[in-house]
Design a protein around this nucleic acid. Structure first.
Lengths: 192, 192
DNA sequence: TTTAATTCTAGAAAAATATTCTATTTGTGA
DNA sequence: TCACAAATAGAATATTTTTCTAGAATTAAA
């Protein structure tokens, strides 16, 4: 296996800087110092600061999507599917707080930027993947008939909200305790 | 009534620029041009760019809190309270999309900045106000006993999630149609 | 293995942006 | 009217981002 490419080491350094100082406060120079790359190298690989953000964003969402799809192996039934959607989100954010903070913080910014379309395409595909997974349960009448966007909001909204507060250090209830509550509530509100 | 002060006109111009070009892309110069103020005046009133954001953020949250407290006049019973929390959020965001986009986009940034404590204090007070309003219903046993942070996430999480997507133009279901669905779901998941 | 082409790296130079500073003007109370 | 503070202006400075030119490393073809 090839060791981390220069490109990757720049991304890694960028995430570390963002976590440490916040996205707005980190300068190209800080990323240069931390990664050991030169300005020229940095701009060769990414072109500008915004595209560093975008690349990092895509890498993060892909990591999360992969995590979810791995967890999906053990899904067995509609309730288990809902529980996995909620639980995987909690687990991944819990295990990767720096990534998660970055993704939550920069979503709007990256979507508004030039890579917005790419990103939206990515997300749409992930969404469709979930749709395919739930199709069967829907056809069996196990899930409420709701506009798709409302369904999604009901299912994952509370969890996203909770984890956003957790990342900001605004909540005390330990994750292990919330997990079943949130999973159960999601199921309650989404089942027929 | 005094007409808009220079300070206010700067804030107004800033919000307009942010809505039009995004927060990251607007420069001090753009705000200067749009507001008609000079650089000196701008820095006299706010000190730096970050503090313009913070002031705008505080103004926005205050507007929303006021809106909610007005709507609270008509609350009558626990279900009505839940419905008002959800409905007011939808209404305010629907009527003030620029404000809402800005608030959602910048929360993390402002909280991480020097005004973070002030802001957190503000939010805590608002949160406590809601707590006081719900206390009675809680004592009557009408609301589920849950860790407070989980309760909040269940109540408002789906709505916040939905409105975030609405602001980004990612959903089609009209707000009038979602409103009762979200309110009803919130009540379902939060009532005893 | 040499050559040519391409990719990558480097850092100085330029451009864009944010902030400070000094001077003037405006308003306000004694 | 005078003294003083608050507000405004824009030039000067500092910081940060981006571009540009040149050289080093790598790859592929001959």
């Amino acid at each position: 296996m090839p060791r981390a490419s220069r490109k990757d080491s720049i991304l890694e350094a960028a995430l570390a800087c963002f976590s440490e100082h916040g996205v707005e406060a980190t300068t190209i120079e800080m990323i240069r110092d931390r990664s050991g790359a030169s300005i020229g190298s940095l701009y060769h690989h990414f072109g500008n600061k915004e595209r560093i953000l975008a690349a990092l964003y895509v890498a993060g969402t892909e990591a999360y999507h992969g995590f979810l799809q791995d967890a999906w192996q053990h899904v067995d039934g509609a309730q288990s599917a809902v529980e996995t959607l909620v639980g995987s989100y909690i687990d991944w954010v819990g295990q990767n707080p720096d990534w998660a903070r970055f993704l939550l913080h920069c979503r709007g910014r990256v979507e508004a930027g030039e890579q917005g379309d790419t990103l939206r395409q990515h997300n749409r595909e992930h969404f469709l993947w979930i749709e395919r997974q739930l199709k069967m349960y829907r056809e069996q009448g196990l899930l409420r008939e709701l506009p798709r966007d409302v369904f999604t909001a009901l299912l994952i909204g509370p969890t996203q909200d909770y984890m956003r507060h957790w990342l900001a250090g605004r909540v005390q209830t330990p994750l292990e305790q919330c997990r079943p509550l949130l999973a159960q509530a999601a199921w309650m509100v989404v089942k027929t």
